[in-house]
Nucleic acid binder design. Structure first.
Lengths: 120, 120
DNA sequence: ACATGAGTTGCAGAGTTCTTCAAGTTGTGT
DNA sequence: ACACAACTTGAAGAACTCTGCAACTCATGT
């Protein structure tokens, strides 16, 4: 066997580890979008969007096809949606648990996740 | 709530985007482990392991406590396990869809994703 | 043929993350 | 008190990712 599964998993999560890419997947799991439509809803440079789409294409999470002047993107694996939902649940759970300090449930309400995210 | 959820999600996935950290979470979701036990099962430098554990601690995905001479780690959010399972399913699904398919039916399926992972 | 809108690609500088080394802490046994 | 095992921390260089710019392709309208 060539590559350990845990390594493939890490690669996969890395692909999801970018705000724009999350945004794209969320939008695409509602419905297909042309690039210029994504552009309206996500505030980044066209070339940047294109780069992020390329990342998602490389991992086959999305596929694209031309339709006249536009390029339409769709998710190729519908289960991605479930994954995003699962993530959101863990995340909201974490926010009420995260003691920024140390291992001690019952301690002050954590802001570790919030704070870190806010810091960027 | 100052932080867009999609950004927190990206942060969260970034945390999962490392082979050692995936490995750690997999082991910990079976049962609690002392650091030296993790060390036996994951082949990395002690200090590196410690760094990765620190990353997981910071996001509150795991918690630690001392027990005599050892430090015991446990997952603090059991749902993480579901997430890892979901990822594995998407991943195995992807392997049969991936683009540059030098896949040979009969043997370990598609290598597009795997190969990419191997290339790092 | 030309101009224009829609996307993509290559690239370089800025910014992050990874890994390892050396040094430090904490608890146990002698 | 000392040595030793079990961990953690800080720091630094290598490796990688991100972003925006300029240049390019491709299809449509004039």
């Amino acid at each position: 066997m060539g590559v350990p599964l845990y390594q493939a998993k890490a690669e996969f999560f890395k692909t999801l580890g970018h705000p724009a890419r999350i945004r794209i997947l969320e939008l695409l799991s509602e419905r297909d979008h042309a690039v210029h439509e994504l552009l309206e809803k996500i505030a980044i440079e066209p070339s940047n969007l294109s780069q992020q789409l390329a990342v998602l294409r490389r991992t086959s999470l999305v596929v694209s096809h031309r339709h006249g002047g536009e390029v339409i993107y769709s998710v190729s694996v519908p289960e991605v949606r479930d994954l995003l939902v699962a993530a959101r649940q863990i995340l909201t759970g974490l926010i009420n648990i995260a003691p920024d300090t140390e291992a001690r449930p019952g301690e002050g309400p954590g802001t570790a996740v919030k704070a870190r995210a806010a810091a960027r």
